[in-house]
Nucleic acid binder design. Structure first.
Lengths: 239, 239, 239, 239
DNA sequence: CATGAATGAGACTTCATTCAT
DNA sequence: AATGAATGAAGTCTCATTCAT
């Protein structure tokens, strides 16, 4: 349910709603592919199968269209989270769900839209940033809730700010996709799921409350080992 | 030693080098602030205190200038890594150094440039990507080396692809940056260092070779705990 | 039937065709007056009574417009040849028609365009040359046909390459044009026809199969005459 | 001996004269190769081995340099004619000399400069045209003299204006070179001489006083022949 | 004198946006 | 309601020309 109303003179018929959807879809594709500036209203109109002028009768300008595209994308993801989250599952199950869902959704045109958000959210010349902050909050809310619950149960470490843990989760996901995009690798559904599982595995380890005593011992062992190695390397010429 | 020389007739005198620096600085500022497309040669010239034409006599075009701006920025970072890395330190010390340095450089004056790289590196229309790929490789090399060494010593887990570990490290850092950017928060030096320390702490945990038996036991304890909790919640109304 | 359609989004309505004509006319005028480089899109637009941007919505660029201008001009001439050629006439009649028509079209509104073609066709930097070569071929075809037929009938000399004969015909015509251009003389219709008739007369003589014996005798008579004259001039001071 | 003085502040030393020659040579090359607009002062300076600014200290601007290039070129040709013309030869020998010399001189960078003259002579925006007309006159003078002498002796037809005969001679020569340039054929010295001989042969035939009676008879024979041919073609289906 | 360096003026081209039909 | 057509505004880039050193 979109909360974003706009357009000076938006038609309100039932057919019109389809038009809006078409334009938004075309806009999403083009913006994701080309970025904000390189996307042209001409191409968006063409892909939507309508004339350029029509676009402007549904949206008051390129900026507004872009804002709607971003907002709708966020809405979709938020919806997917709120709808699919296994409310009865364990913290780890919920966590795994969020990671998997996120990766899947991003696979379609995620990196493009991510970059779009990044570049548009930054420019001060429009009010998008305000909206964006709120969307970002709602979008990370499910993860934050899960993490908070985990902390309350003692299953997630509490010695670092929640915000940092959030970055620990979302960051790698985006980076993985970014890598794939740069390398022009097309990820299959299977690959995505494999990566998701690996990510969950590693991330979950990072989220564990540190076993102080154990960790200290492990570190001690490592340190001694390295010191010894360096000591042995002393007598020999530098390779 | 920069290997980027071009443009039709680039002045080469000793004073000229200052001009080049001025332009690069202005370019860095504007590109970082506005992004590639929204940055105009007019503004760059103005901030450098020279005429537009002069810019083009030092750089053969907007793209080359942008490429140089990015390349120089990378060079700085790479330099900082190669210069400051404690070659005699333990794996963990080196790892900590990389994370801390990275975060500092990014958050101090890199937010805009980071976004620039992220936005422009993706789109295939510029040939920036070619230059970028190589820089990206050199730039991630120190971390990769450290991780590889860690794996060889058994201090870093070897059961997931190295690429994933890299994403595990860079991802969160970029996300922290992203957060700061969107929120338009300026972090103080102290805040940055605190964050860096926390990040190192958490990331290092993620990089540890998994103690399979221990992890399984811990998970079992958690699962039982949650099951029990849900059982007890049965009789009460859903909060 | 023009086969030249392009530009990103060319209007196609019935009114648009008038626009295209207007622009082509303005383009022809300006290109003819100023040459390719000195002609500006601004002036073309102004003379066509439209904005600069409109020009570029009908033609994808200055070069395409220029190419169309030239092509259309050639088309007119070629049309005039193919339509008016007296197919039932004698070789000489057809030859005369070609010369007369050519001269008329050139001198009436072709001076500028001729110079345009001459100047721009030569430089390899434009890709006009490709288009031009083919047009040039079609444009010289009628004359070539007539000359070939003349040769077959024995009415036109066969002892020199056809290519040279072509230059013998087109060369003088272009030179007449050049003269008129440099002298900025406007020739009246009558003057043009007189010149055409004279040209035909002289050119036809040049095309005649040489009567070897007769020519040799004539030359002998001339040589003797001159020798005699020089002999007589010996005693007198050089005038 | 150049009659063209110019430059606001031209150095007058003996070395300076070499500089001027260098610049003029470079200018000639570049203008011939690229045409007026595409020629840049930068390239001219570079080819002359001096700095751009120096060019402007010897010539007050691009236009003046171009004018001097053209004027010098004409001067050269005129000189070659006036110097080498066999004053004691027959009309035909002199005529042959002019044709041969012309073709040879043009071979170097003639077509380029021809086009340059054509396009620059036309533009009204500078006073070049006045100078040009005079140069053109002096340049055609030798041929005009020879033709006039031929007419006086009765060896050259007098029934058409001298100006037309001039075009009959110069036109084909330029056209031949133009053809070669367009086809990107490099003409060897031998080819040039062969072509020159053929041209002389054909042109001389055209310049002969018409043997009215003979020509009329020949035409009669041709006409009858064609009429007969057409008559015979009547009964057969059109091929 | 020669030139390195700077620039004003202007060209082509693109595109979001408007408006009459 | 939809669009074909037109355009203002802006941007990148080039080059002849000037001037202090």
């Amino acid at each position: 349910m979109s909360t974003h109303t706009s357009s000076r003179r938006t038609p309100a018929g039932v057919k019109s709603q389809q038009r809006v959807k078409d334009i938004l879809q075309a806009g999403r594709d083009v913006f994701a592919e080309k970025g904000y500036d390189a996307a042209t209203s001409a191409e968006i109109a063409q892909r939507a199968g309508i004339s350029e002028a029509t676009v402007f009768s549904y949206f008051s300008g390129k900026r507004e269209l872009c804002a709607r595209v971003i907002a709708d994308w966020y809405d979709e993801i938020i919806d997917a989270f709120e709808t699919g989250l296994p409310r009865e599952g364990t913290v780890r199950q919920q966590f795994a769900f969020i990671v998997r869902t996120h990766l899947r959704l991003m696979l379609v045109n995620g990196t493009g839209l991510c970059a779009l958000v990044l570049s548009e959210g930054r420019s001060k010349q429009h009010d998008l940033s305000e909206t964006l902050t709120e969307l970002q909050r709602r979008y990370t809310a499910p993860l934050m809730d899960v993490l908070a619950r985990g902390q309350a149960l003692g299953h997630v470490r509490s010695d670092v700010p929640l915000r940092l843990l959030r970055s620990m989760v979302f960051g790698p996901m985006e980076h993985v996709l970014w890598d794939a995009t740069l390398a022009k690798r097309r990820l299959s559904q299977t690959q995505i799921d494999t990566t998701a599982n690996e990510l969950v595995e590693v991330l979950w380890a990072a989220l564990q409350p540190p076993d102080v005593k154990l960790a200290a011992l492990a570190q001690f062992r490592q340190d001694v080992e390295e010191a010894s190695r360096r000591y042995e390397a002393q007598g020999k010429p530098i390779s």
